[in-house]
Computed example of a mutant assay.
Amino acid sequence: MIVEIWSDVMFPFCYIGKRNFESALQQFSDTDAIEVHWKSFQLDPNIPEVATESYQNYLVTRKGMPLQQVQDMLQNVTLSAKQAGLTYNFDDAVMVNSIKAHQFIQFAKALHKDDEAEEVLFHAFFTEGKNIADLQTLLTLGTAIGLDANALQQAIENQEFLPAVIEDINQARQIGVTGVPFFVFNNKYAVSGAQPASSFLEVLNKSFGEWKATNTTPNLIISKGSSCDVKGNCD
């Protein structure tokens, strides 16, 4: 069963939502039957690729939020992250456009490494204060999860995966996504935001039960002959 997750790696509840969903998966009895697809989304495509302001200043100047409200909000989000086992350092966060980071994710997704890509990008941005619009930073992160640095560099410089990013964003608009994280289970049930693990588990059980009812394992009548098994035994 497919679970699709729209996310933007620079916005805090996406990382918290990832952890809570993973916690639900750990409690789910049929984890091996779940296939997770990460999808691109940009909450603010107008952020420049060159860092010009802090996370706090970004919310005050670009979103028009009062300073005290921003400070209180970031403190509360940091606490929520800590409860999910994450460390947020908003004072070190580098506010830049996430379009290259999404192309990095799409490149990794083609190699079935989009979950690893999301993880290293979240950690780099929220915990380590790294610039996720910097090509060399992305190449270093890619190497860390087993991606070919030369192929990744070529893909980003030539914007090979930009159409995939745009396709995800357009798809999100078509289904009415206005905020992330946004989870879609079996193309039927949706969960918006960083819900508790118990909420994700409830939807997992419900959606998987329905999926399994229409995706049963065929009861094959097998005629046996000489073969080799997965342990290397041949007879």
Rank of each mutant, 00 (worst) to 15 (best):
V3N: 10
E4R: 13
E4T: 11
W6L: 11
M10I: 14
F11C: 14
Y15C: 08
G17V: 01
K18A: 13
E22H: 12
E22D: 15
E22W: 12
A24G: 02
Q27M: 11
F28V: 05
D30M: 09
D30T: 07
D32P: 07
D32G: 11
D32I: 10
A33C: 05
A33E: 07
V36S: 05
H37L: 15
S40F: 05
V50C: 05
V50F: 09
T52Y: 05
T52C: 08
S54G: 12
Y55V: 08
Y58Q: 11
Y58L: 12
L59S: 02
M65A: 06
P66A: 02
Q68N: 14
V70E: 01
V70Q: 03
D72V: 08
Q75W: 04
V77C: 07
T78N: 04
T78H: 03
T78V: 01
L79K: 06
S80Y: 04
S80W: 06
K82R: 13
Q83M: 12
D91E: 15
D91G: 11
D91N: 12
A93V: 12
A93F: 06
V96Y: 06
S98T: 15
I99F: 07
K100W: 09
K100S: 10
A101E: 03
F104P: 05
F104Y: 04
F107T: 04
F107K: 05
F107M: 02
F107Y: 08
A108R: 06
A108Q: 03
A108E: 09
A110N: 04
A110E: 03
K113G: 07
K113Q: 14
D114K: 06
D114T: 01
D115R: 12
E119S: 10
H123C: 05
H123N: 14
A124P: 02
F125E: 02
F126L: 05
T127Y: 07
E128A: 09
E128W: 04
G129Y: 03
N131Y: 08
A133E: 00
L135I: 04
L138C: 00
L138I: 01
L139E: 01
L139M: 12
L139F: 06
T140K: 13
L141Q: 00
L141H: 04
L141T: 02
G142H: 00
L147G: 02
A149Y: 06
A149W: 08
N150V: 11
L152H: 01
Q153N: 10
Q153A: 15
I156M: 00
E160G: 02
F161R: 00
F161C: 00
A164E: 08
A164V: 03
V165A: 09
Q171S: 15
Q174C: 08
I175S: 10
G176N: 10
V177T: 06
V177C: 10
G179V: 05
V180E: 09
P181R: 05
F182T: 09
V184E: 02
K188F: 09
Y189D: 04
S192L: 11
A194C: 01
Q195L: 07
P196V: 03
S198F: 03
S198G: 06
S199V: 15
S199D: 12
S199R: 14
F200R: 04
V203T: 13
N205K: 15
W211Y: 15
K212R: 15
K212L: 13
A213D: 01
T214L: 12
P218D: 01
L220Q: 13
I221G: 11
K224R: 14
S226V: 15
V230H: 11
K231Q: 14
